[in-house]
């Protein structure tokens, strides 16, 4: 119990920016789904089992079009292909996390990944419990918000447009932190340059998969150089 309490204390501060973003986006999700005639239970169901922000917004559209599970399957694989990168990055860190491992994998969203790949549990805090609680807290924010959004409908009194920028801000700050923690900047530069080039060539809706392929190719070519310098 004490192990979890110290891990909770250590994990919570890291999740605050995600809390802000998830509470807002989760509410928006719940409201949109509710406005399409779905009871809030559906929003909760999706936030528990799908738990992937952008895909859940796509799902709202799929639910209101013709029933086509095969297309849904393919769209999901394409939209969420970036998770493959996260999994490969976390293979080592998730080693030896035992019974917590399946949940750590199931809850590996963009935001949870961004925290866990750039943060180590502080001295004296159990690493598996720390990672577990970061993952769990984030999902609690997300599920709670979609529940509230689905329940409340549209009782918003203040203008919140632009608040979703909190996610962009989080990723930029983590990018800077990662940049400063490393002498080797080739992987970071590769990620940005290749993605921008692919965005220009393939457009905003189709650039992630080409980016992933090209990033992998470039990093493979650079392997000898990077490993020699390390």
């Amino acid at each position: 119990m004490k192990k979890y309490l110290s891990a909770l204390k250590a994990a919570f501060p890291y999740t605050i920016p995600v809390m802000a973003g998830y509470l807002f986006l989760g509410m928006v999700f719940g409201i949109i789904l509710g406005s399409r005639g779905y009871h809030f239970g559906w929003a909760v169901l999706m936030s528990v089992f799908i738990y992937a922000g952008s895909m859940q917004f796509v799902t709202v559209n799929l639910l209101t079009s013709a029933f086509d599970p095969l297309s849904a399957l393919l769209i999901t694989l394409v939209v969420n292909a970036r998770h493959l990168f996260y999994g490969i990055s976390m293979l080592r860190k998730y080693n030896g996390t035992g019974v917590k491992k399946p949940y750590l994998i199931a809850g590996l969203t963009d935001e949870t990944y961004s925290i866990l790949c750039s943060t180590e549990a502080p001295e004296g805090v159990d690493s598996a419990s720390f990672m577990f609680l970061v993952t769990l807290l984030n999902q609690i924010y997300w599920v709670t918000a979609s529940f509230a959004g689905g329940l409340l409908g549209s009782f918003f009194t203040f203008d919140t447009s632009g608040i979703d920028f909190v996610m962009t801000a989080l990723f930029i700050v983590i990018f800077i932190n990662q940049w400063k923690s490393q002498k080797e900047h080739m992987p970071a530069i590769t990620g940005v340059v290749v993605s921008v080039v692919c965005l220009i060539i393939f457009g905003p809706d189709n650039f992630i998969i080409p980016s992933m392929v090209l990033i992998t190719i470039v990093l493979t070519i650079l392997r000898n150089t990077i490993e020699r310098r390390a």
């Binding site: 962009t168 990723f171 930029i172 990662q178 080739m186 992987p187 990620g191 992630i208 990033i215």
Partner: peptide, 13 residues
């Protein structure tokens, strides 16, 4: 190396 590249990709995303 992927965490650094993936975070760059996520910012662009």
């Amino acid at each position: 190396v992927l965490p650094y590249a993936a975070m760059g990709m996520l910012v662009v995303y």
